[in-house]
Design a protein around this nucleic acid. Structure first.
Lengths: 341, 341
DNA sequence: CTGAAAGCGCTTACAG
DNA sequence: CTGAAAGCGCTTACAG
């Protein structure tokens, strides 16, 4: 396969000049550059990333750690990241850490520990101290998108605010018997996506003087449509103490809740209002009122931030827009209405 | 960062021996190997893939070309591939070619043309002659999963058989007024997933003596739930000529069809039977009868096949199980029943 | 079983 | 603006 020496020979220059013309920043006469470029095109030369990164120390490759790729949010984020990376000439190497146990350890201790990636984006996973330390030792910047890791920059919507916004919407519609269908683990940690949304829900209730005790029910489910279905079936089981409004921690949970209502013959929004969080692509079809977020855009922002960080080195001002949560928007459709009297 | 020279020094051996102990196949005394391994662990040595692949010519990295990662089938396949690759010590570099235009050309002419991947798995994309040629020139094996590319091995279910199986199920239940909700492009090419399934549907009808002309309706839609909803709404629009059975080219289309029936007050399966193809994770929740396939498993098989191919080189018998379509299974649930009289 | 040496394909100071 | 040379971190014949 063609190497840079072949290009140089064909163009009648040295390898140094060929290299500079093709990629290096050094100055090359316009005419020379053209000659080299033509030679490269002629023999179909493409740089060897291995050789280049061996000397530059840069791989132009970003590792993405993600718990699953199935699931609307994760798929969208991944596509957003991929598009942005490709545009910047970077590769994306994917690491699935659904397993947790040994597989996960292997990703951090072996795959990510080598010099194959310049930096890491962790999507929806919480990294423990050991994992962060391992990456830091290798001088690999880490950016969290929707997950937490001590001491690393983080990009995310304000989950507490999103939960509050959803609950407030129902409260303003006059609902007083509210329930929350949250994601698994919501109770365990406020510093998690389901935990934050649940806390927002509870805060809104307190602010409105609706004691969470007797009047609000909080259940947990896997964040999928079947999860929402099962949990809501449970919730609507006792006709006497039925909530009139449900805040679901995700749109998929909300879809499941809608289906549960249908199955039990509970009219939406006549007898029951349902609101989700996400802005899932199917939300419109279901007529679901929801708090939208924009994961593909979030992925793009994560890439921009990380590449800037990589370019500047560990600057004094590592994250210009750090702290500012990502945008979110309440979209009212037909699953929420005034509380029934 | 620790290099192999450091390990060698600490273990009191040469770099050659250290290399052999850590990765090379050469014989190393058991005691020496232990000493080297301990030294490596002590200073946290991890091999530099760039340096290694520069000399071996192998990257231990596989490129996956995929049109989107959102969508149940694609997500499952990707997870299956990733798990299998990780287990084999390989990296997965992801290339999204949803765009088609310039972005797609860039993936094939630049990203995939470099020596960054050893081979390519194309998931659900058809490669044109130029793209295949470009990969071949770089000596990169290509494996197609659910897509087509001239002259490259292909792994897939038999889409025609799947379509036939689905239709036959309804025919055996006595249905004679059948409709097909297919994926976009089904009419254009039989050598495409939607095209194959549609052809299978039509074949089954012919075999049963149900002329596709007057009695069967065939519509196309984007292969999503909203797509299926819209197409089925259309299909059920004329109460007089309503089909009693719908074969959907995918489960998501079928979910949409179910929703359309619900909206129009058409009882399933009393007045209308619906069958899908896929085995989507939500199929059970919807009670959907479907022809299951197993994309995660397909991803694993793709990896196994490709790695074997890579190990053996372009052998005489490149694909032992080539031609044998991947497994499929009819799962009957509650959306199909005897045709109404 | 082990070591010295060459070389994979680049980029980058260093001179000129 | 251009070239000769060193070197990035490994692996692999080749000897011994």
């Amino acid at each position: 396969m063609a190497a840079i020496g072949d290009v140089a020979r064909l163009a009648g220059v040295s390898k140094s000049t060929a290299s500079r013309a093709l990629s290096g920043g050094g100055h090359v006469a316009e005419e020379t550059r053209l000659r080299v470029e033509r030679a490269a095109a002629e023999i179909g030369y493409v740089v060897s990333p291995a050789a280049a990164s061996l000397v530059t120390g840069r791989t132009k490759n970003i590792g993405v750690v993600i718990p699953f790729v199935n699931g609307w949010f994760f798929g969208e984020v991944l596509e957003g990241i991929e598009r942005a990376l490709l545009a910047a000439g970077y590769d994306l190497t994917l690491y699935n850490v659904a397993g947790g146990g040994e597989d996960r350890a292997r990703v951090f201790d072996y795959f990510l520990a080598r010099r194959r990636v310049d930096a890491v984006i962790a999507v929806g996973v919480d990294l423990d101290a050991h994992e962060v330390a391992s990456l830091e030792r290798r001088e690999k910047p880490v950016l969290c998108l929707g997950g937490y890791a001590e001491g690393t920059p983080r990009i995310s919507i304000d989950d507490v605010a999103a939960g509050r916004l959803a609950a407030d919407h129902l409260i303003q519609l006059g609902h007083t018997r509210l329930a929350h269908v949250g994601g698994t683990g919501a109770a365990r940690s406020v510093r998690s996506v389901p935990g934050g949304r649940r806390r927002g829900f509870l805060e809104a209730l307190s602010s409105a003087g609706l004691a969470p005790g007797g009047r609000a029910t909080v259940v947990e489910a896997e964040m999928t449509m079947p999860g929402g279905l099962a949990a809501t079936l449970q919730l609507l089981g006792h006709p006497g103490r039925r909530p009139t409004g449900i805040v679901a921690a995700s749109d998929e949970l909300a879809f499941g809740a809608l289906r549960a209502a249908e199955r039990l013959g509970v009219a939406v929004p006549g007898e029951l209002s349902v609101i989700g969080i996400d802005g899932h692509e199917y939300a419109e079809m279901f007529g679901l009122t929801t708090v939208e977020q924009y994961p593909a855009e979030q992925g793009r922002i994560a890439v921009d931030t990380l590449l800037r960080l990589l370019a500047e080195g560990p600057a004094d001002d590592p994250l210009p827009d750090s702290g500012a949560p990502l945008p979110t928007r309440l979209v009212v459709r037909s699953t929420t209405a005034r509380a029934p009297r």
